[in-house]
Nucleic acid binder design. Sequence first.
DNA 1: ATGGGTGCAAAGTGTTTGCAAGTAT
DNA 2: ATACTTGCAAACACTTTGCACCCAT
Lengths: 130, 130
Amino acid sequence: MKQQRDTKQRRLVLDIVCAHSDHPSADQIYLDVRMADKKISRGTVYRNLKVLVRQGQILHVRLPTTDRYESRTDMHYHLLCVDCGAICDIPLLYNEKLDKQASLKTGYIIKRHRTIFEGVCPSCSTMKEQ
Amino acid sequence: MKQQRDTKQRRLVLDIVCAHSDHPSADQIYLDVRMADKKISRGTVYRNLKVLVRQGQILHVRLPTTDRYESRTDMHYHLLCVDCGAICDIPLLYNEKLDKQASLKTGYIIKRHRTIFEGVCPSCSTMKEQ
DNA sequence: ATGGGTGCAAAGTGTTTGCAAGTAT
DNA sequence: ATACTTGCAAACACTTTGCACCCAT
């Protein structure tokens, strides 16, 4: 891995991700970062998100329309409200045994799995009843 | 759900998806469909894939760069080779209990979950050894 | 005849990249 | 001094859409 430098842009991107608890998208991060520094470009935000993910400083969550980021870095699962698009962490343990089983059954070297639950959040479901 | 018609384009898209066992992308499907009918447009393929997914006739698999489709319609998990991009079904049972647990812990109405395993396939891993 | 479907091309999204200038080491 | 980073804008990849015409029902 090539040597990384400590730039104010990179620090700012990391800070913003850490300041969020709602799994912001690259663009939301960009907008926030812009409030602190009017000169930062989208490209820089995207590049730094990639570097931070590779370094393991932030986590990358793949979602339908846009990828999201978060500062919690232990493996865990996510829950998406298919109505309002809200996303949250889900209090279930990462199942490492699954990776072993999958490896045995397929012959692949399994690194991990990603699980996204899809459902309707409480506030969206009460809204529907009315 | 609005009334659907039976067009030769829609039938063709479904046939092509069924003829594949390798989780083709919309573009791969488009190219195949074009071999049978030179006039079909990308828009039509995308629109029909959407209709077929909504009707439950095909399954939609969300992957990093492009979405994929397959004719097997029961809930199951997928395995992606992060080196060559190949994707395959994985012989593990869909865990319905997880949805119940997630629902109890979060208060969401959980409809389903999607799990993607990430690893390196046998042929990519032997290639690396050399 | 009616309203869903099609082809086309243009417009969207979200993300990446080439380049010249800037800056951390 | 070196080579990683940046801002900018252009380019990308994938998907959606408006529109006028077409066709299954």
